[in-house]
Amino acid sequence: MNAPDLSLSRLIAAQPPLEKLVIACVLAESQRVGAQPLIRGLGPASFSMLCATCLAGLELDNGTAPAPVFDEFDELFELLVEHAAPLDQMSLWLAAAIATAAQRDNHLWQDMGLPSRRELNAILRLRFPGLAVLNVGDMKWKKFFYRQLCQSAGVPICKSPTCGVCVDHAECFGPEH
């Protein structure tokens, strides 16, 4: 009787890619909070293809809802797409999923339904490396994204000229629980 092959490389190879796991987590969290649509910015054909690709044939209804009067979904989606590598369908889906989750109220990794910030860091480094590398101080991701958006719009958002001397440093760079 042969023992099963439990080598690390075989176990890793048997796991779905991180991208698919992140998409599945975002969809599950969107369902849990009753979000409509589950992932914004995707037409019916694209959402159907996402389900076929990431959910092993499980079909979901993305739903529809009017966009809020004001949020930053479009701007954040574009920021992510600008830094996507490769710029392929999966990166577009991930950008939409991240931008959707970022409109919620908790830490981004929580709003995405991820178990910890580690997975968020990993997907950003994997699919949006040019953006991830800019977060040199390990700022909380939502704060970092919005800081990037404000800087590109020429809107000053910080109370201090540098983060190191800001009274809110712990809020931006502290632990995420």
Rank of each mutant, 00 (worst) to 15 (best):
V33C: 03
R104S: 13
A96T: 13
L149R: 11
W109N: 07
Q36Y: 01
S116T: 15
V81R: 13
A99P: 11
S152K: 15
Q103E: 15
R125T: 11
L87A: 15
L27M: 10
H169Y: 13
C163L: 08
E82A: 14
N62H: 03
L87Y: 06
P16N: 00
A99S: 15
C51E: 04
R117D: 14
L55F: 06
F128M: 13
P44Y: 00
E171K: 12
T100M: 10
A24D: 04
S7H: 05
Y146D: 08
R32F: 03
V133K: 13
P44T: 07
N2K: 06
E78G: 08
A45I: 09
L6Y: 09
R147Y: 09
I23C: 02
S91M: 05
R125D: 15
A102N: 14
S7R: 11
A14W: 01
E29C: 01
V33Q: 03
G43C: 06
A14L: 07
V33I: 15
R118N: 12
G34H: 04
A153P: 03
L76H: 05
Q110G: 04
L55S: 02
D5G: 02
V136Y: 05
R10M: 02
N2G: 02
A35K: 06
L114E: 09
R40L: 06
P86W: 08
R10A: 14
E72L: 12
F47W: 05
L149P: 13
K140F: 04
V167H: 12
R147C: 09
L27H: 01
T64G: 05
P16E: 02
D88P: 08
